[in-house]
Design a protein around this nucleic acid. Structure first.
Length: 284
DNA sequence: TACCAGGAGAGCG
DNA sequence: CGCTCTCATGGT
């Protein structure tokens, strides 16, 4: 586990589903694996029979940042055991064996999901790619490989004009990204302090930002590993919950939120991810 | 062409 | 609270 290559031994980990389940936007198929960027590293990942193989383009003294990102040490079986034993949940778990949640950088989550509002996943990826290409730090890549870039820092994006950000095709979200970058860069919003707040307080802190509602706040809290109970309620989950748990009835978001908060337990965010992936990719 | 997208926010009853 | 409209942009 040193140098340019590492092997993480892990079971019940479906790398492809995990990287492609709408929680991260920068992974693309490459060879028989996936390439992407984690922090300031270009990374290539591949599923093996015993776990996950990782390669980088420059020597890595310690791989903790990557096993943390991949959440290698999470005991997924105990997470699954905590889910309700109803038919829809069991079907989702059966269909999405090995689906995991990543632990991503909080700022990257925040900026990315501000860009995600009312956009398709394909377009979100394009916006973020443009953002990184223009304003991210260039990273070491294998020789002959096209350049790769880190996610731009809050300080960098805080210096951009609204029009510069609009060049990344994010439309009316541009001023929101800029304002969020300024809040974080100036220290008025402390993302590292969110973990010390109860879920609802953390939500309130994020929702103060323009362009951040409950859905995006919960995405940030869940996908950056701060609150596993956060439950992003989007169109897919709304559809899934309505169909699976309230067939033929009309349900408001308020009802769905209350149901989600009381029904799925301490790892509700994981349950959400299973239902999301289940309905979006697998089920009709 | 027309429609819609992992939403948010404002205005209104 | 619940409903409706608008926002910018690109993919289908």
């Amino acid at each position: 586990m040193d140098g340019l290559r590492a092997l993480f031994r892990v079971r019940n980990y479906d790398l492809a589903s995990t990287l492609n389940s709408g929680q991260a936007f920068r992974w693309v198929p490459y060879g028989d694996g996936w390439e992407g960027v984690v922090g300031n590293y270009w990374v290539w990942l591949r599923q093996t029979s015993t776990g996950i193989e990782a390669r980088t383009a420059r020597p890595v003294p310690c791989w903790d940042w990557l096993s943390d990102y991949l959440q290698i040490d999470v005991d997924i079986r105990s997470v699954l055991r905590s889910f309700p034993k109803d038919a829809p949940m069991q079907a989702a778990v059966r269909a999405c064996r090995g689906l995991r949640l990543l632990r991503q950088d909080t700022w990257e989550c925040l900026a990315s999901f501000i860009c995600s509002s009312n956009k398709q996943i394909v377009q979100i990826r394009q916006i973020i790619a443009a953002l990184c290409e223009r304003y991210g730090q260039p990273l070491d890549v294998p020789s002959g490989h096209p350049p790769a870039f880190a996610f731009p820092t809050p300080a960098t994006l805080a210096q951009c004009t609204e029009n510069e950000l609009r060049q990344c095709r994010m439309g009316f979200r541009a001023p929101h990204v800029r304002a969020a970058a300024i809040e974080v860069a100036t220290g008025r919003l402390r993302l590292d302090a969110l973990a010390e707040l109860p879920l609802d307080s953390a939500r309130q802190a994020l929702v103060r930002l323009r362009g951040v509602g409950l859905k995006i706040a919960d995405c940030v809290l869940l996908y950056s590993g701060i609150h596993p109970r956060a439950f992003p309620l989007d169109t897919w989950i709304r559809r899934a919950l309505s169909k699976l748990y309230f067939p033929g009835r009309r349900v408001t978001d308020k009802q769905l939120r209350e149901f989600a908060a009381s029904h799925f337990g301490p790892w509700a965010g994981y349950a959400q991810q299973y239902l999301f992936h289940y309905t979006r990719v697998i089920a009709d």
